[in-house]
Amino acid sequence: MTMNNDRFWDLLESFHPKAEGFCRKLAGNRDDGDDLYQDSLLHAMHKFSGLRDEKAFRPWLYRLIINRYRNRVRKPWWRRRETLGAGTPEGGADDPAGRYDSRRWLERGLKALSPEERALIVLFELQQWTVAELAELHGRPPGTIKARLSRARLKMRRALERYLVHQEQTNLSREGAYGLPESETAVE
């Protein structure tokens, strides 16, 4: 078992930062991401002895992470662990580049996706996986992966569009109520 454990950690070391980053981006924040990562590793350690080909370790672990994430999201409401706010905002108040705003927009777009689509977008757009790698991960032809990526991106764009419309309406109603231009309202 210890031998097995050592081998597990050896195999993980080469792509551990990427896998950890994937979990954080998939979960939407660092705390939930780290929790998902550790939970997935724990699960993977127990299942590791059943893995036949060590070359398949990386896609195997990613598949496991995606499954764990999907199970968390699909848990019945009474078991779901709710995060208040967006977890620990990395950067906190010191956010000169508007990272927090950017992350908020990203999260809004990702929320429109199913867990599988979310994993696909994170891996392709944020972790620069190729279509071929994604095809191997999911065991689907590249054409299918491309179509799924395109659909997921369209969903995200529509979600952002809806949010833009909502924001425009909110700004208009504020101007109507206070007679103030948008910039002044925003300053308040």
Binding site: A97, R99, R103, L106, G109, E125, Q128, R153, L160
Partner: peptide, 9 residues
């Protein structure tokens, strides 16, 4: 969308 994806990556 392009901007936020780029920023996040």
């Amino acid at each position: 969308l392009e901007t936020v994806l780029q920023a996040a990556s």
